[in-house]
Computed example of a mutant assay.
Amino acid sequence: MGYRRQDWLTYWLLKWLVVNPLFRGLYFGRTYGQENVPRQGSLIIVSNHASHLDPPLVANAVRRPVAFMAKEELFRVPALKQVIRLYGAYPVKRGGSDRAALRATEAALARGWAVGIFLNGTRTPDGRIPQPHLGAALVAARTQTPLLPVALWGTEKVLPKG
């Protein structure tokens, strides 16, 4: 999951020319508590999930790159695969324990990355977390990495499930 110089440039261009203007300008997004987010070092960001836009919005809000687990089906779409990999995503097989995704998560944390995990493992229509999975807590305990809870609200109205 290491970035080449060109990838970093493309990442930051996407963030500042596409994601941030959408978040701030089009959707009038606001963030609270950014001063509490460590700027470096490993970190597991846990959040609710209602919209396709949640991963880039979380990364934009915490002001640092975040590697997200993403369902493996997304990596079958060639153009989308390139964009989400650029944003640090790596595939996870849903419905069971995916050891490769767990190793990718631990490797990213060992390199000092922030890793984003949506607690439901999928989007919900209202952004609530009715049945959180325990994977984030397991990874945090195994790697001695702090958890940062993030709450998104209103994103269920922007590119929602279905």
Rank of each mutant, 00 (worst) to 15 (best):
A101W: 01
T122D: 10
G154Q: 07
K157N: 09
H133V: 15
A151Y: 09
W113F: 01
G127D: 09
W113N: 14
T105A: 12
A114K: 09
K93F: 08
I129M: 12
A104I: 01
G112P: 03
T124R: 05
W113M: 12
T124A: 06
P130E: 05
R103P: 01
T143Q: 14
G121R: 08
Q144G: 08
G88I: 02
A141E: 13
T143M: 14
K93V: 15
A136K: 08
L138F: 13
G135D: 10
T105H: 02
R103T: 04
G135T: 11
G116I: 04
N120I: 04
P91T: 08
L134K: 14
Q144N: 13
A107G: 00
V92H: 06
P91H: 09
A104M: 05
R99E: 08
A137I: 14
P146F: 02
D98T: 07
A110M: 05
W113R: 14
R128L: 11
G95E: 08
L138E: 13
P91Q: 05
Y90L: 02
A136W: 03
F118M: 10
D126K: 02
I129L: 06
T143N: 10
L134G: 15
T124N: 08
A114F: 09
L148K: 05
D126Y: 03
K93H: 12
A108N: 11
G112F: 00
A108H: 13
Y90W: 06
G127T: 13
Q131W: 03
G112V: 08
V158A: 09
R128T: 15
R128I: 07
A101M: 00
W113I: 03
L152H: 09
W153K: 12
T122S: 14
N120W: 00
Q144K: 15
A108M: 02
F118K: 00
R103W: 03
P146R: 06
G112C: 01
T143H: 11
K93W: 02
T105W: 04
G96R: 09
E156R: 15
L109E: 05
L138D: 13
P146A: 04
H133N: 11
I117Q: 02
A151M: 14
G112T: 07
R128G: 13
A140D: 06
I117T: 04
G135K: 11
T155H: 04
A108S: 13
T122M: 09
G96C: 02
K93L: 10
V139R: 06
T124D: 04
P130R: 08
I129H: 04
L152M: 09
H133A: 14
A140Q: 12
R142W: 09
A107N: 07
R99K: 15
V158P: 03
A89I: 08
G154D: 04
L147A: 11
G135F: 03
A101N: 07
L148D: 04
R111W: 00
A151I: 15
P149C: 05
L102R: 12
A140T: 13
P130M: 07
A89Y: 07
A100T: 12
W113G: 07
A110C: 04
G121T: 10
G116R: 00
T155D: 06
V92F: 04
K157R: 13
G88P: 02
I117N: 03
P149D: 03
G127K: 07
V139F: 11
P132G: 14
V158G: 10
L102V: 15
Y87H: 00
G96A: 10
L86K: 05
G95C: 06
W113Q: 13
L147Y: 10
G116Y: 01
